[in-house]
């Protein structure tokens, strides 16, 4: 049952990411990928810090793990570099890391209240 839930949730969250992040311009900061990653980090913070979620592997590993992506950030930064947008590539990676950690911290704080 857990295995089936894992497969379904992983498929659904992967598709959500694919649809939400497809078709972004290659020479601008991909804000939709940024939004998906930061939201996922925030939600994962809530789930892992919550005491009421006993077996979160489907929600965390299959769901939010598949929703967010690390390799796409690298690909998008490389794409920005290829298109001559060095500053945007650096800014994109920098704000993704800083905002992601801040969002995760905020999520952990909220999760601990539950």
């Amino acid at each position: 049952m857990t295995a089936l839930a894992f497969v379904v949730v992983a498929a659904v969250f992967t598709l959500m990411r694919a649809v939400l992040t497809s078709g972004q311009p290659v020479d601008e900061i991909p804000w939709r990928t940024f939004t998906v990653n930061i939201s996922g980090a925030f939600l994962l913070g809530i789930v892992v810090a919550s005491t009421w979620w006993n077996n979160p592997v489907v929600a965390t590993t299959a769901g939010l793990g598949s929703l967010t992506t690390f390799s796409t950030v690298a690909a998008e930064a490389a794409s920005l570099l290829d298109n001559g947008c060095k500053g945007r590539a650096m800014a994109y990676v920098g704000i993704t890391v800083v905002a992601g950690i801040a969002a995760a911290w905020f999520g952990l704080s909220i999760g601990e209240m539950s």
Partner: peptide, 23 residues
């Protein structure tokens, strides 16, 4: 690419792990 690599890698775990250890 979008399916396998996108889901193999994860940003949320990275962010939460850093925040968690910072706390």
């Amino acid at each position: 690419a979008t399916g396998f690599c996108g889901s193999l890698t994860t940003f949320s775990a990275f962010a939460v792990e850093v925040a968690w250890l910072l706390r």
